[in-house]
Amino acid sequence: MPDWTNHLNNLANQLWRLSPACRIPADPARLKLVAHRGAYIVGRNSPAPENTLAAFDRCLKHNIWGIELDVRLTKDGEPVVHHDPACGRLYQRPDIDIASTSFAKLRRELPQIPHLQEVTERYGKRLHLMIELKESWRQRPPLQSQLQKTLGSLEPAVDYHLLSLVPDYLEGFRQLPASALMDVATTNTKDIIRQNLALGHGAVAGSFALLNQTVIDQLKAAGKSIGTGQVNHPAIVNREAYRGIDWVFSDQPLLLDKRIINQEK
């Protein structure tokens, strides 16, 4: 997320936690908590940067239900887990552009960046994998065959979902059940929902502050599953449970479960 988006989301969390729905009795345990890019630790030289095995291991340790991770292809078509096109923001290596770098060189220069195969072998069937596609199968044809091979031992919609901010990126995977395909909205909620309904993908995710109850009820009536993010306050988890949300995505998943908070003390 850009910095301004983080600021707006933090403000929304502080404001919406005052919503009356946050105080209506609900069962947050029914929600499935997804750690956005893992339970990462922010900061230069972090021991658990986002989208790394260390960040995902923290989710496993604390029994987080699922992890969201971003997938890009290297120059030679290997799927790796990294959000940005280049590696400057996290690793101070803006000279390394993933699409222009072979996997061998990437592994040599930045071993922290995992191959998708490493993630599926380590966490498959232990954590639910919410896999966001950052590139189009139309421009990067190996994406289809690589994901099919890497995810072959897992059951779609049960063990993993494919996500994208661009609904067409999921159209290359229509061999999967529709329930495994999730369209993600940022501020373009109406447009994403329109495309989701037209394409028949089975799930939608968007901002907890922008998906109102009328829209949620319409999506539920259409048989859609729904995720909201980025929820970073426990009171809003209660609100989302009351509203019938299926998944809650969070940048701060360890703050949302009192059991985890107690473990961390």
Rank of each mutant, 00 (worst) to 15 (best):
P141K: 04
K220I: 07
K105V: 08
F208R: 07
K125T: 12
P28S: 11
K61P: 00
R174T: 15
G88L: 13
N196C: 14
V184S: 05
A205R: 09
K190N: 12
A209E: 11
P167K: 07
T150K: 05
L73E: 03
F208M: 11
E155S: 15
W16N: 11
A35S: 02
K224D: 01
L73Q: 03
V184W: 01
A221W: 01
E78G: 03
L255E: 12
A35M: 00
E68M: 13
K190F: 00
Q175W: 11
A241V: 08
S19M: 06
K190S: 15
L165Q: 06
L176P: 05
P111R: 00
K75E: 08
D97Y: 05
T214D: 11
L210C: 04
R89N: 13
W16C: 09
I193T: 14
K265T: 06
H83P: 03
W65I: 09
K265I: 04
Q14R: 14
G227A: 09
V248T: 04
T150N: 05
A205E: 12
E121Q: 14
L31E: 08
Q230V: 06
P28M: 04
Q92Y: 11
D168L: 03
L162W: 02
H233P: 00
S179I: 13
L73A: 06
S250T: 04
W16I: 12
D97I: 08
S207Y: 15
R72E: 10
K134L: 04
Q148F: 07
G244C: 08
V119M: 02
Q148P: 00
W247I: 06
D183Q: 05
V71S: 02
H36A: 01
K258S: 13
D84R: 03
L151K: 06
S250V: 02
G152H: 12
K105M: 04
W137S: 01
A180P: 08
D76S: 03
H62W: 13
A86V: 09
P167H: 09
S225E: 06
I41D: 03
K220A: 05
N9S: 15
V80H: 08
S153Q: 15
L127F: 04
A21C: 07
N238G: 03
L73F: 04
I113W: 07
E68R: 15
P49N: 11
S102M: 04
P20E: 12
T187F: 09
D84I: 07
I67Y: 13
D159F: 02
P156L: 11
A55D: 02
I41Y: 04
Q144D: 01
R243S: 14
K61D: 09
